[in-house]
Design a protein around this nucleic acid. Sequence first.
DNA 1: CCGTCTTCTTAACAAATGTCAACCAACTGT
DNA 2: ACAGTTGGTTGACATTTGTTAAGAAGACGG
Lengths: 194, 194
Amino acid sequence: MNLIQIKTYYQKLIPTMQQADWEALSSRFNYRQLKKGEFLTRQGEITRTVSFINKGLLRMCYLIEGKEICTGFVCENEYISSYASFLTQTPSAENIDALEECELVNLSYEDMQQLYKTNPVFETFGRRIAEYLFIMVSSQTTRLLTLTPEERYQSVIEYQPFVIQRVPQYMIASYIGITPEHLSRIRKKISSPV
Amino acid sequence: MNLIQIKTYYQKLIPTMQQADWEALSSRFNYRQLKKGEFLTRQGEITRTVSFINKGLLRMCYLIEGKEICTGFVCENEYISSYASFLTQTPSAENIDALEECELVNLSYEDMQQLYKTNPVFETFGRRIAEYLFIMVSSQTTRLLTLTPEERYQSVIEYQPFVIQRVPQYMIASYIGITPEHLSRIRKKISSPV
DNA sequence: CCGTCTTCTTAACAAATGTCAACCAACTGT
DNA sequence: ACAGTTGGTTGACATTTGTTAAGAAGACGG
């Protein structure tokens, strides 16, 4: 299993990590592959791991009255998890599935708690991850409240171009809170301004 | 300054905190009062403190083209801050102002970093706070994407009753992403179901 | 190479939500 | 007690967004 990417990720977030820390950490990793369409997490299941994405693209999504509503897309060199479920060890409200073939490096809840106990450097890491995720999701909330659908689409283009390139439009539509038809009209309007 | 409430708060989040830890922490607190309408944080300012609310009620809000859009309400026995600004020490995108007369216990960024360095127990605390905030804000994002305005209002009634009781309706309206007029109609519909 | 999915687009129409303006009730300070 | 302010409601109307249905373009497996 290739650990270069994930090591770089940790080194960036906690530069004080020593070789011994890294070994304590990496010995607990589990490798996993997902085919396109496979689920990492299902609604109702308790999320037992966080997954670093070596390769591929996944989405978080809700199934409401037969309709899928995407709440996020994550690709290489980031962690993905139904993190609320992971943290509280209660059933996940959302699904996570692979939009592309994926290679994941998993770390279990028990191992993470163990690391927290044995070494404060991992507390720091856990804190920074949570802080980062907080900033990400609160900016998404802000966008939903303060921007029009068209502006939200523009902000995806600007700040998450990989989503435009790799995610089907009807999923992006639900992510910005509109229907696929409406997004199609917005795109038409943008491409041929008056 | 009354520290009973904030001490209880810390003890709940980190039961392993010792008396010496508490003293290291509480010696850094600063007390502050806010009158109704006063600002704790202004758009563009860097947030230098986190504030524990001993008494009162504050809101986070954006000013967009002359219109206020509220993103959250926080009352007694919780922390409030423009946390993204605090964490990154960059200008805040949002305002925070007092909806009632407030008593706050403040902790500065520098003191917090100092505490993180000197004692891992505060890292744990910081991590749990960030995790908690992440869960809160991501559930708000989910509500915005998956619920109708009426359902969002119902969920405020159910899960944040203090908001219904203590926050003006036109602010609640922006919080759930609709106009005050529309909220008024929703309330009428709810109160006299067909 | 063919059919079948999947995804995207378009149009007509319907429903939800916003805008504007007026009015009312409650509260506030003098 | 009064005038001003704030917050809430209502109605008519405009705009935005959703719904439904149909069709087109491209991807993909057999």
